[in-house]
């Protein structure tokens, strides 16, 4: 490890340790660094900004209580994103009796070169047809950018198992979304 990388690792260790000890500035630093990644993943799973925000708020509460159990501070992003993904999955179950008003997402730049892009509204519709587990897998891969091995560690699957599940999901989405 280079000195620079070593210094960064020590700094991260220190921030996580101080946050676990209850230091507010260190905890706020973690929130600033990782909240948006957690929110993006939770939103892809739930399809609802408000539900996703609630899930991530709960995820921070869970993370704070369990921060002391994190052995490798360098895995903090993956660890937090996985907690947010799980809370998002649980929030889907809590909505089982909810009359969801499905609001259309404003296309975000979809008008640019529409023939070569997958429209967000189509992706949103396709995601609604997937189970919570499949949504979670796609969110961890594409919204959080985790590799198969990282996802496997949290799904208690082999990396090859994650890859094969992803391959099946991609093929399904290709049939639904690839109109060009």
């Amino acid at each position: 490890m280079t000195n620079r990388a070593s210094d960064q690792a020590h700094a991260l260790d220190s921030i996580v340790g101080r946050a676990a000890a209850g230091e507010e500035r260190a905890f706020a630093t973690l929130v600033r660094a990782h909240h948006e990644s957690m929110l993006r993943v939770a939103f892809v799973i739930t399809g609802d900004r408000e539900v996703a925000a609630d899930a991530v708020q709960t995820a921070w509460s869970v993370a704070w209580r369990r921060l002391g159990t994190l052995r490798d501070a360098s895995a903090i992003k993956t660890w937090l994103v996985a907690i947010a993904a799980n809370e998002a999955r649980l929030s889907l179950r809590r909505q089982r009796r909810r009359a969801v008003v499905e609001l259309a997402i404003t296309p975000n730049g979809d008008t640019d070169d529409p023939g070569r892009r997958i429209a967000i509204v189509d992706l949103q519709r396709a995601m609604r047809g997937l189970s919570a587990n499949d949504r979670m897998l796609l969110a961890l891969r594409f919204a959080a950018g985790l590799e198969s091995a990282e996802i496997a560690g949290h799904l208690q699957l082999s990396a090859s198992g994650v890859r094969s599940r992803l391959a099946r999901l991609l093929e399904r989405l290709r049939r639904e979304l690839d109109h060009v």
Binding site: V41, V44, R49, T106, N108, I120, L138, A143
Partner: peptide, 8 residues
């Protein structure tokens, strides 16, 4: 598409 979707 996922990036744009999550950005919202």
């Amino acid at each position: 598409a996922f990036t744009r979707y999550a950005d919202t």
